[in-house]
Simulated scan of single mutants.
Amino acid sequence: MSMFQIFHISGSAVSAQSQRLNTVASNLANVDTVAGPDGTAYKARQVVFQTALMGARDGGPADGAGAGVKVVDVVEDQTPGRKVFDPKHPKADEQGYVTYSNVNSVEEMVNMISASRSYQNNIEVMNTAKSLLQKTLQLGQ
């Protein structure tokens, strides 16, 4: 694997984790939203990753090819939203329950920390590779 391939692999991970962070931000922004006029509340979304072969040539695997990551889908969590009894709420149903989103703020915070650390680690990998390439160039001086 060439040193330059590291940038492609880490770059794919940074891009994927960036999308994951954006999804988590959307989920956290909708923690306390209630069901709209159609009766459905916001549903938490999760990013689905898949391994992506990096450095393949002519449709086949290349010598020294590495595996990166790509986002293949963003799926909605189908668990029902939490219901709170509040008959005075303007969005309450006939039984007096208000349906909130199914977003779990604790899980989303853990997801955010994990995505943030993965993002930071991949940036550090790219910075280390850059530093090694610069030192290699300096050997010839």
Score class of each variant (00 low, 15 high):
A44I: 13
K70P: 00
F7L: 01
K83G: 06
Q141C: 03
Q50I: 01
A13Q: 10
A65D: 05
E94P: 02
Q50H: 06
E94G: 12
V72D: 02
N104A: 13
N111C: 05
N102I: 04
P87T: 09
A56R: 11
V14M: 15
M112S: 00
N22I: 02
Y42A: 02
L133Y: 12
K88T: 09
S26Y: 05
N102F: 02
V72P: 00
N104L: 10
A25Q: 08
Q5S: 15
S18M: 04
S101F: 00
I123Q: 00
V14G: 11
K130M: 03
L53N: 09
K43Y: 04
S2T: 15
P90T: 11
F7M: 07
V74N: 07
Q46M: 07
R20K: 04
A129M: 05
I113K: 02
G68Y: 12
K83M: 13
G39N: 02
P37Y: 14
D38C: 10
P37E: 14
A35K: 05
F85A: 04
S118N: 10
Q95S: 11
A65N: 13
E94V: 10
E107D: 15
G59R: 05
M54G: 04
D77M: 13
N102S: 07
A35T: 10
L133T: 10
L53Y: 02
P80V: 08
M109T: 06
D86N: 15
D86K: 09
S105A: 09
Y119P: 08
M112H: 01
Q19I: 07
Q120Y: 10
L137T: 15
T51H: 06
A65I: 04
V103G: 03
E108M: 03
I123M: 02
